[in-house]
Design a protein around this nucleic acid. Sequence first.
DNA 1: AACTGAAACAACCGCACAAAG
DNA 2: CCTTTGTGCGGTTGTTTCAGT
Length: 261
Amino acid sequence: MKMEKEEVRKGPWIEQEDVQLVFYVNLFGDRRWDFVAKVSGLKRSGKSCRLRWVNYLHPDLKRGKMTPNEERLVVELQSKWGNRWSKIAQKLPGRTDNEIKNYWRTHMRKKAQERKKTKKNKKVSSSPSSSSTSSSSSSSFSNSSSTPNSPRPGDSASAPATGIEGERSFYDTGGVELPTLGEKNKTGGLEVEVGNKVYSMDDLWKEFEFSENCPLTSQTVASPIWDYCPTDSLWCMSEEESKMLMMQQQQPFPFYNYMIG
DNA sequence: AACTGAAACAACCGCACAAAG
DNA sequence: CCTTTGTGCGGTTGTTTCAGT
């Protein structure tokens, strides 16, 4: 698929983009990123959309500081597996590989500094007891060079985002799964194929109303954007409400244009 | 109160792999 | 088969926030 040479937005996401992305991910699922990017009218690459979703907008994300327990796990698993962040992230529900990676970086820095300090101290006085604060993680410290970045063996093992065979990835919202989503219906009709069923857009809108089954409402929602979405999340609104909201956007969701246009 | 350095967070980039055509 | 395309991963960099002086 040749990407049209439209200018691609980069840099920080604005709130409206987030809302838009969440909207479309819940509509089409979190698989076809290129499609989602296009259909949503966001001037972002599919890649960028995925990243934003996975690292920031996903409803299952935990936010806030790592707990000591998590910290310990990260250190432990890192020493076991090296920098296989996505694999490590699988063991830390609600945490992303990016988050863990970032944590590790600062953790390493800290450690390096502590080491320097203790070396100096040892030189000065042989008394031990460097009262390192976060020493919980201490001994198992290993930097990436000491834990060779084990090459990704065909990486089916580390096709982690999809998880271990059969398992659904943590990142997988289970959004409407569209294995054979027929992109824009060739006939121009408003139909979408889901599995071996064909849904009309009306159906999709109904699907959209599924507030009861809405997996999102029952979850603790952590991402800021979910706070933004009035009382109930966008996808749990009635059809009318959601349409209204779209109208309010300075830039109406181009989805209609795409599907209809 | 202003400044500075460190830590935390967010995003991009390049590469590798798998699936589809 | 080969090429193209989409996706995921790890590394890296840029930005924001926080704490200490």
